[in-house]
Simulated scan of single mutants.
Amino acid sequence: MTPPRARRPQVPMEQRRAELTEVALRVMAREGAWALTTRALAKEADVPHGSVHYAFSSKAEIVRSVITADTDSAVQIFGGVDVDGASPGETLGRAFTAYLDRLIADPQTELVLQELTLMAVRDPELAALMAESSIGYGASLGKLLATLAEQTGRTWDAPLPVIVEQLLGLLFGTTQAWLLHRDDERLRCALADAARLYGARLEQVAE
Score class of each variant (00 low, 15 high):
residue 69 A to R: 09
residue 188 R to V: 01
residue 107 P to E: 08
residue 24 A to R: 00
residue 45 A to I: 00
residue 87 S to F: 07
residue 206 A to N: 15
residue 126 L to N: 01
residue 166 Q to M: 13
residue 51 S to D: 12
residue 64 R to E: 10
residue 104 I to E: 11
residue 48 P to R: 15
residue 35 A to F: 13
residue 7 R to S: 11
residue 128 A to Y: 04
residue 14 E to N: 05
residue 85 G to M: 02
residue 156 W to V: 06
residue 64 R to T: 04
residue 127 A to Y: 03
residue 100 L to V: 15
residue 16 R to A: 08
residue 200 A to F: 10
residue 28 M to V: 05
residue 107 P to Q: 09
residue 185 E to I: 07
residue 68 T to L: 05
residue 16 R to H: 02
residue 57 S to Y: 03
residue 193 D to A: 13
residue 161 P to M: 14
residue 2 T to V: 14
residue 112 V to C: 09
residue 189 C to K: 09
residue 29 A to D: 04
residue 102 R to S: 07
residue 204 Q to N: 15
residue 202 L to T: 05
residue 74 A to L: 08
residue 113 L to A: 08
residue 137 Y to N: 01
residue 105 A to S: 14
residue 200 A to Q: 11
residue 68 T to H: 06
residue 104 I to G: 04
residue 158 A to Y: 06
residue 169 G to W: 02
residue 74 A to W: 03
residue 10 Q to N: 08
residue 151 Q to P: 06
residue 155 T to H: 13
residue 115 E to R: 14
residue 18 A to R: 04
residue 196 R to Q: 11
residue 82 D to E: 10
residue 147 T to P: 02
residue 197 L to N: 04
residue 39 R to Y: 12
residue 91 T to Y: 02
residue 63 V to G: 01
residue 192 A to D: 08
residue 103 L to P: 01
residue 100 L to Q: 10
residue 141 L to N: 02
residue 132 E to L: 01
residue 17 R to M: 05
residue 74 A to Q: 07
residue 154 R to W: 06
residue 120 A to F: 07
residue 205 V to R: 15
residue 117 T to R: 09
residue 40 A to C: 07
residue 127 A to H: 07
residue 38 T to A: 14
residue 193 D to C: 05
residue 141 L to V: 06
residue 100 L to R: 11
residue 46 D to P: 05
residue 45 A to M: 01
residue 94 R to F: 10
residue 132 E to W: 00
residue 67 I to R: 01
residue 60 A to E: 08
residue 144 L to K: 00
residue 1 M to G: 15
residue 79 G to H: 00
residue 2 T to W: 11
residue 151 Q to D: 12
residue 200 A to I: 07
residue 118 L to F: 13
residue 151 Q to C: 10
residue 123 D to P: 05
residue 71 T to F: 03
residue 113 L to F: 13
residue 204 Q to E: 13
residue 183 D to E: 12
residue 107 P to Y: 08
residue 170 L to K: 00
residue 125 E to Q: 12
residue 170 L to C: 01
residue 203 E to D: 15
residue 31 E to P: 09
residue 52 V to F: 02
